[in-house]
Write a protein that binds this DNA or RNA. Structure first.
Lengths: 192, 192
DNA sequence: ATAATTTTTTGATATAGGTCAAAAGCTGTG
DNA sequence: CACAGCTTTTGACCTATATCAAAAAATTAT
């Protein structure tokens, strides 16, 4: 019998809470291993997001459409959860699509299963609260950085927060994430 | 004996969880009523933020300094908690100051008391997770809006999200919140 | 009230970065 | 390999918004 490679995931949980064997089992039973090909759609904005993916390997992109153009919202990577946050939370459709920038290995957890875990393992509530706090902090920092006036400053901040993965993301996607044109970003990269 | 006016606060909690009498009592015992005069400093960036304020009446401003200028981060108002998020969470200093835009009535809850509540009332964990989700949603929407190209679009989005209180916030503070100059904002308001 | 201070508006000018267009560089497929 | 379809770069030009400066309006203090 093949054991699921849940090490990374458990390690992630243990950054926030102590994992009991019972919770480990309950999690393992509910996680479904899933892979996505490069470019494959992970979540469609026209549907309610009922699944959250914990990325083991690879890189995704959360984006939305504005005037027909794809605007990157953020890039979930190894060791992070990926979903359409509000849709997953409120069970309503939202504007975000998710696709795979690279081939992805992930564990899938459905809302219903997650709810079961919240009901039966109070420490899951704590995990969610604490891990959400971390993400919240990143978002705040990002808002702060988006007000840095020049495009160069925005790009520099992007590089520093995404230093491990920025070279794996196409230029055009980074430009829309920063709210600048790809021409401008290309010029910023050229000088220096 | 004077009863604390905890109605608004309890109502806020009950948007997310059912409040037991025991939790109500535990909360009431730990909340300290506090007022701030207009312009008074609520939190100093040079200190660790150990208190969270639930605003009953009035308006605050969370801001930081960039090149000696005050940049508004957001404006906590009636029915919301106000603190320096990362400092409160990590017990380290952070860049944010908080002051009162108007005279404020608030309930103060210290970190230690909050920790006690998390330890003894699992439903508090759930409350925190869920209410944080709401705030998280607002932040995401804001990041999306910050990429709207024109200053006018940013301002329109601000008006729609802060429609109840935008007229109570001085123009200069709104401008720095949006990342535009106050001259530009003044001109936007003038036309139309 | 009157003065003092702060906030907002108005004007003139400069520039970062947008738009449009086209060339160059990559990547994958039969 | 060669072609098709992307992605990135380069160039020319233009516009929204920043800057700087000063007047006007509003708020606060004496």
């Amino acid at each position: 019998m093949i054991t699921k490679q849940t090490d990374t995931l458990f390690k992630h949980f243990e950054d926030y809470i102590k994992l009991s064997d019972a919770l480990k089992t309950a999690l393992t039973e509910r996680l479904v291993f899933k892979t996505f090909k490069k470019g494959e759609l992970v979540h469609d904005a026209n549907k309610v997001c009922t699944k959250s993916y914990f990325i083991q390997k690879g890189l995704m992109r959360v984006y939305f459409l504005k005037d027909g153009k794809e605007i990157s919202e953020y890039f979930p990577a190894e060791g992070e959860w990926s979903n359409s946050p509000r849709s997953f939370r409120t069970r309503q459709v939202d504007i975000y699509y998710i696709d795979a920038i690279e081939q992805v290995d992930a564990f899938c957890l459905g809302v219903t299963d997650l709810m079961y875990l919240f009901e039966n393992f109070p420490e899951m509530e704590r995990y969610a609260r604490l891990s959400m706090g971390t993400v919240f902090g990143h978002f705040m920092e990002r808002i702060t950085s988006m007000r840095f006036t020049t495009a160069k400053e925005k790009y520099d901040h992007f590089i520093s927060t995404y230093h491990d993965i920025y070279h794996r993301i196409p230029l055009g996607m980074i430009a829309s994430y920063l709210g600048i044109t790809q021409e401008t970003l290309s010029r910023i990269r050229a000088e220096k």
